[in-house]
Design a binder for these strands. Sequence first.
DNA 1: AAATCATATTTCCATATGGAAATATGACCA
DNA 2: TGGTCATATTTCCATATGGAAATATGATTT
Lengths: 100, 100
Amino acid sequence: MSAYAALAEPHRRQILDLLRDGERPAGELVEHLDLSQPGVSKHLKVLREAGLVAVRTQGKQRVYALRPEPLAEVDRWLEPYRAFWSQRLDALEHHLEENP
Amino acid sequence: MSAYAALAEPHRRQILDLLRDGERPAGELVEHLDLSQPGVSKHLKVLREAGLVAVRTQGKQRVYALRPEPLAEVDRWLEPYRAFWSQRLDALEHHLEENP
DNA sequence: AAATCATATTTCCATATGGAAATATGACCA
DNA sequence: TGGTCATATTTCCATATGGAAATATGATTT
């Protein structure tokens, strides 16, 4: 699954937000997420396959960490759009139309 | 549908990319998109409902324009992640672990 | 080796989604 | 008004998705 598709699910974005503070075992994510344990595990699988998180086994725990690379790709896609809101929108559009 | 979910579909991102060059009638999008006319129309509906495009009727044509606001929201979500790839990743993570 | 803990996988179900094809709608023109 | 063009909507189908519940797996402890 693409990073874009992975981000379409709010719980998955929430998982990434949690991992911004540092790596966490799966169980800790379950505690924070108002979702069943299997539910979280499924979403983690999607995030793994999208390359957005990495797992490491530590004792009986599975510790998840953020892998930001795919987000960087999204960020690059977004890049050319930034011009559309960083300046006043109407003025910019007008400018572009008149100076193509 | 959320902006995130709207972006999950590659054709929809492609439509937005086309609209970055300026507004276009639906038919012109169809020409560029290796998709049937109804297919494009369906995706345009999703983009409309997500607030990512606006339509204007001009004669018998329906002219579509980019509405970047929802992308700005995505950009804001992405913001805190930027720190994770703007500096060398390993060094940064190491730094954060030692200075929490 | 058995029991236990943490997590993953499977199964089931209801719903959402994309694409193709057919049809409908609305604006303009003759 | 009837016809045509551009586009939207509907219908159909196959597949994907999320969530809940049950079960399986792998590591650790006893």
